[in-house]
Amino acid sequence: METKQEPILEVKNLSIQFGGLKAVDDVNFKVNRGEIVSIIGPNGAGKTTVFNMLTGVYQPTNGQIFFKGEEIQGKTPQNIVKAGMARTFQNIRLFCDMRVIQNVLLGMHTNTDYNFFDLVFHTPKYRKLEREKQQKAVDILKFLDLDRYLHDYPTNLPYGDQRKVEIARAIATDAQLLLLDEPAAGMNPEESEELLSFIRSLVTKGFTIVLIEHDMNLVMNISDRIYVIDHGRKIAEGLPQEIATNKDVIVAYLGEEEEEDQLEEVEHA
């Protein structure tokens, strides 16, 4: 295993502008291998926008993103997934009319290497690879304790398990870095407690995790380090206990509520 201090992700001076609005402004952060790093901040602070730039949905106006030492800003989402970074979504985006296992298999899309000829003529290569991937998909579901849903369609699953299927799909891409966008949203305390130990277990399996989360209990319990973003800017960083007592953070969370709402609207427009 690599040492803990080796950065897997490094973001420098990341900025994006929508029209005149700086949604993310000069943000720097770093994630080391095997860490759980959380990005927190009030609604509309620009957290999801950061994820969108990391994964290639938006092109940053400025700044650099290094993933495993390589610059990835400007690359297509496909290439970023291939490089080993996968995400989940704030509002679950599973493929509703595909079965759970098909959702997971879709996650393996980029590293399923048979071509059109293989699939039409069911060549030995196709049979071998398809069997391998199906087995791997079943195993991932088993690992996440979701294998009983293998044949089901995602919409028939409880909410918490749908989130887990999204994580399963992200894992299936062979990603080393998982970006989880509010995984605990809409969960009851028990479910989010379960999620907490589940995310920890992911780290022991060798995954590195970046988390966007509102559930402060979860964040404080799980994170190795925390970055706080407000109004598109990084206002604090540090260990959970440092963040909990940081004055700027408390102001950002408790004060200036009207302004946040406005920003939220603009960002989602």
Binding site: V81, F95, M98, H109
Partner: peptide, 24 residues
């Protein structure tokens, strides 16, 4: 029933999510 068909269906269900999972 192949990778290709799954990519098609993923595009049908949610093309943005499909992109984010590496489907061109």
């Amino acid at each position: 029933n192949s990778k290709m068909g799954r990519a098609f269906m993923a595009i049908r269900d949610d093309s943005l999510a499909a992109t984010m999972m590496g489907v061109d």
